[in-house]
């Protein structure tokens, strides 16, 4: 009884809290952005003209009757704004339409591809952040030391390198020349690597993860280092040092908390892109995920699939942005909830 009352009380205090109003306001802000992207996405289809004419190019002997029935099947016989509204209502109900190739429902296709991408991306993002934070901090602590110069030039190299090319180099060296790792796919197709399903999975993950981590690492380290440098020169760090705190405490308890902001923004962007995957990395390693499927769908102009994947990425990015904004409030109390 008393616990029930405390739950209602805490719930009503949550409703009235500044945090709740803040979240609601941010959610409302997301609506126009979402609609804007959905409108642009939808009208991209019409820049291409009639998707059925593309089918006709592929199958010249198709009859006019078949075309008409296909038109009705895909709902292409209605006026454009009606088509948009139909598409949007379907989308909000989780129905993404049917693929122009084979006519299978897009949400089923996406569901079956998404897991591979999420697996690859989550592992890479976690690794990248775990590695980059200590390296960035150390680099800032000893600015212009040999270690710092090495780290900064390697990370500048990282942002200058085409992602897919790093993948190509790894495949050439480790798969083709040394024969140590599989060059394609997400699991052993002809045989199991290292005679064990789990080890096989790891063998397939090593190179794609290495590529993704390296690219993210480069970005992250540059961000953390630049922020840390600025903060280590600030007055409150000087004050913290003067009051006799250990260097470790100064850095990890006071400075890091302030330096982490832009990193979290970047983390949010990466989380939003989890679903998008890295199309180039997936393409190079023939990873059966969403990114590679997107490239194929764009090549074949399979619009329902392209639009479906785009809208999912958009939603993920918006949600990730919201999560970042909320995280900011907890990390940095100076941010006012407006």
């Amino acid at each position: 009884m008393s616990s029930g009352r405390s739950i209602t009380r805490s719930f009503s205090s949550l409703l009235g809290s500044a945090m709740f109003r803040y979240i609601v306001r941010r959610l409302l802000y997301m609506i126009p952005v979402f609609l804007g992207i959905s409108i642009i996405s939808f009208f991209v289809m019409y820049a291409a003209g009639d998707p059925l004419s593309i089918i006709r190019i592929g199958k010249p002997d198709i009859t006019q009757e078949t075309i008409e029935s296909l038109k009705i099947y895909y709902g292409l016989d209605k006026p454009v704004p009606i088509q948009y509204l139909n598409w949007l209502t379907n989308l909000l109900q989780g129905n993404f339409g049917k693929s122009l190739r084979g006519g299978r429902p897009v949400n089923l296709l996406i569901g079956s591809w998404a897991w591979e991408t999420v697996k690859l991306q989550l592992i890479s993002i976690l690794l990248a952040f775990a590695i980059s934070i200590p390296i960035g901090i150390n680099s800032a602590k000893k600015q212009y030391s040999k270690q710092d110069v090495a780290v900064t030039s390697i990370s500048l190299f990282g942002v200058s390198m085409p992602t897919f090319w790093l993948g190509i180099i790894l495949i050439i060296i480790f798969s083709y020349q040394l024969g140590l790792l599989p060059s394609a796919g997400s699991r052993g197709a002809p045989y199991l690597w290292w005679d064990n399903p789990i080890l096989d999975q790891i063998a397939h993950l090593i190179m794609p993860v290495a590529v993704l981590v390296y690219v993210m690492l480069a970005q992250n380290i540059r961000l953390i280092r630049a922020n840390m440098l600025e903060i280590l020169r600030s007055d409150y760090v000087l004050a913290a040092r003067a009051s006799g705190l250990s260097e470790r405490k100064v850095i990890y308890k006071y400075a890091l908390r302030n330096a982490i902001g832009p990193v979290i923004t970047y983390l949010g962007i990466s989380l939003g892109m989890i679903i998008a995957g890295a199309p180039m990395t997936e393409y190079v390693f023939s990873w059966p995920g969403l990114g590679r499927r997107y490239v194929t769908a764009a090549m074949e102009l399979d619009f329902p699939v392209v639009m479906g994947i785009t809208m999912i990425i958009t939603m993920m990015t918006l949600i990730a942005n919201l999560m970042i904004d909320i995280a900011y409030v907890y990390i940095d109390p100076r941010i006012r909830l407006r």
Partner: peptide, 8 residues
């Protein structure tokens, strides 16, 4: 900015 630019 939210756009998956490369894909588009």
């Amino acid at each position: 900015l939210v756009f998956p630019a490369l894909l588009f």
